[in-house]
């Protein structure tokens, strides 16, 4: 039954023979098992990012509604976040270098760049904690006024997402040390890189929303 036969089109067919969805997602009966997993991981990530986008979209709409209130006192951005922004942008560069090193299979460079990215990510989170402290030392706390509340909550939720990224980087690093990663076979560096850039993008977006809207 499993031999490939060209199936002539019969009346029974499918619900009318429409293939509109299939152009992009073909049949996966053929193709190597690992190739399939790679696509699956990428697709999974893309969909998960859609969900994360909705999370931040919900926060943003809450923010916009709330910022119309008459008790809104704009908050001056704590200076440290600019340092953090630079760190994060830089980490995206190292992430990209790592990914490219992986694709052209330079394992040493690959591991180095991934490690650097993870460290930069951790540094960013530490920097965020410092920025919160900086704000708190000015007497601006979570509950002080709505803008500060949103600042803490949004950057906090972002930090959690970045933390997940850092953990993922460590995981990749662990696989790499055990020589379980080879280009073409494994997609996890690419997937993590996409996630990393995305979380970086969210950061820029948050800065714009929080301070330039």
């Amino acid at each position: 039954m499993a031999e490939t036969l060209t199936v002539p089109k019969t009346k029974s067919g499918d619900g009318g023979g429409g293939d509109f969805v299939d152009q992009s997602f073909g049949d996966y009966g053929s193709g190597g098992e690992s190739q399939k997993r790679a696509d699956t991981a990428k697709l999974g990530l893309r969909i998960a990012l859609g969900s994360v986008t909705m999370l931040f979209a919900a926060f943003t709409s809450a923010y916009i509604v709330r910022s119309a209130g008459e008790d809104w006192i704009p908050l001056a951005a704590p200076s440290l976040i600019w340092v953090n922004t630079v760190i994060l942008l830089f980490s995206s560069v190292t992430m990209e270098l790592g990914k490219r090193a992986f694709e052209s299979w330079r394992p040493v460079a690959f591991r180095k760049w991934i490690a650097v990215t993870a460290v930069l990510g951790a540094l960013f989170i530490a920097g965020q904690v410092a920025a919160w402290n900086q704000l708190a030392s000015q007497g601006i706390y979570l509950q002080s006024h709505p803008h500060s509340s949103f600042f803490y909550v949004l950057t906090g939720v972002h930090a959690v997402h970045l933390l997940v990224g850092v953990l993922a980087l460590f995981y990749v690093l662990m696989l790499a040390r055990r020589y379980e990663l080879t280009p073409g076979e494994s997609s996890s560096p690419g997937v993590v890189a996409t996630y990393w850039h995305f979380v970086g993008g969210i950061w820029i977006y948050l800065i714009v929303v929080l301070f330039y809207l």
């Binding site: 490939t4 199936v7 499918d14 619900g15 009318g16 023979g17 429409g18 293939d19 509109f20 969805v21 299939d22 997602f25 049949d27 996966y28 009966g29 053929s30 399939k36 696509d39 699956t40 697709l43 999974g44 969909i47 998960a48 969900s51």
Partner: peptide, 24 residues
């Protein structure tokens, strides 16, 4: 629920057997 949904969508899009078009 979100983890579950992710699995559903990816499985249906990506792991269909040969010949199983969306409209089937």
């Amino acid at each position: 629920f979100t983890m579950g949904g992710l699995n559903f969508v990816v499985t249906i899009l990506n792991l269909r057997t040969k010949g199983l078009k969306m409209m089937r």
